[in-house]
Design a protein around this nucleic acid. Structure first.
Lengths: 202, 202
DNA sequence: GTCTATAGCTGGATAGAC
DNA sequence: GTCTATCCAGCTATAGAC
């Protein structure tokens, strides 16, 4: 019996995933806030009421998109670093963030800019994004930075570079090429000096 | 005759301004992309067709809002600095940018985030914003920074702080309190060392 | 210029047959 | 679960009287 329920649940999840995939197609063309249920149904090859068999509302569709985006984000950011040296891993983390955001502008808008009136992601959908921020915290800790202000400065620096890149030079490298330089600037500023006494920052 | 035309033109501009003012009221409540001509007319105390006596389309209303916002931005950023010391003026410029953006979230969204599908500001509306960027360029030049990469890093740092502040702590000071620190970080990193020979950077 | 009235459409969401 | 058919609200924009 459990098998049957699993099977039905999997079918349902597959159908939901197909609709969400069509939704990403749609927002890629008409913009994030231009998503409409009718158009979505057409793209998914079904009819309007069928959408409501899988989602309770349009915002529920947005929420499923948010969840998927947040899971992708977590996966993207938690992949093992290619270089074990902490400083290089930090640069790689910043670059990964840039690349993830640039790869899909509507996804970036949904995840990081709050721009759809009336939509707030559910706690479940939000959770993976929170876990991904933990990655940044750990990366910074590995280079000796653990205070909250420095973490905030780090996120500001990263989102600023991404924001300018996407808004003003979506197909170039004008800001992404500054990334290495920006990380160096950040590290020089916030990293505790190599202390003479071993007990510092303990 | 010219007097009559001026008078009529002024009347027309006043009527347009009143509609734009009502539009700012509206977007403050329903969100930038939630603006509707009907609601706007109601708020302005007129009827729908009258809107079209002053604006050719909904995007034309957005364009007038953009122009006004860009003019306000230019005024806000070009006001004389309270402290003539270049470093202090730079910090003040950054703080002005933060305060201007925080003061009105929909205005920030319209001016700096491109989030309304199908709307692009006209060149006329955009011009004041470009002139305001010149202020940043001049401020940086006054502390000896004139390369394009540093200017880009400066804008990224500023927008990043603002973005995080608005998105994640709209009523607090979590990122705006980092501003002074961030400027110090930036200056240490990009400012040419005080050279022993006077001819450097000449 | 401003109104009433409405065209013409598209939106989210649902009823009920199958 | 999926469909046809549809409700009803909202939208942008316009026609035409005054």
């Amino acid at each position: 019996m459990s098998n049957l329920q699993d099977w039905k649940g999997a079918r349902r999840e597959a159908a939901r995933a197909a609709i969400v995939a069509a939704a990403w197609d749609a927002v890629g063309e008409v913009g994030l806030s231009g998503l409409s249920i009718r158009d979505l149904a057409k793209r998914a090859g079904i009819t309007t009421p069928t959408i409501y068999a899988y989602f309770s509302s349009k915002n529920d569709v947005y929420d499923a998109m948010f969840l998927q985006a947040a899971e992708d984000f977590e996966r993207h950011m938690t992949a093992p670093a290619s270089d074990p040296a902490p400083e290089r891993a930090l640069v790689e983390g910043a670059r990964r963030f840039m690349e993830f955001c640039r790869a899909d502008a509507p996804r970036y808008q949904l995840l990081f800019q709050r721009t759809i009136p009336g939509f707030e992601p559910s706690a479940d959908a939000y959770a993976p994004a929170v876990r991904a921020l933990e990655v940044a915290r750990n990366l910074l800790a590995s280079v000796g930075i653990s205070d909250a202000r420095s973490l905030d400065l780090w996120t500001a620096l990263n989102t600023g570079l991404v924001d300018q890149q996407i808004a003003n030079d979506p197909d170039g490298e004008r800001w992404s090429s500054l990334l290495e330089d920006a990380v160096a600037m950040f590290l020089t500023h916030v990293r505790p000096r190599r202390s003479t006494t071993r007990s510092r920052n303990r």
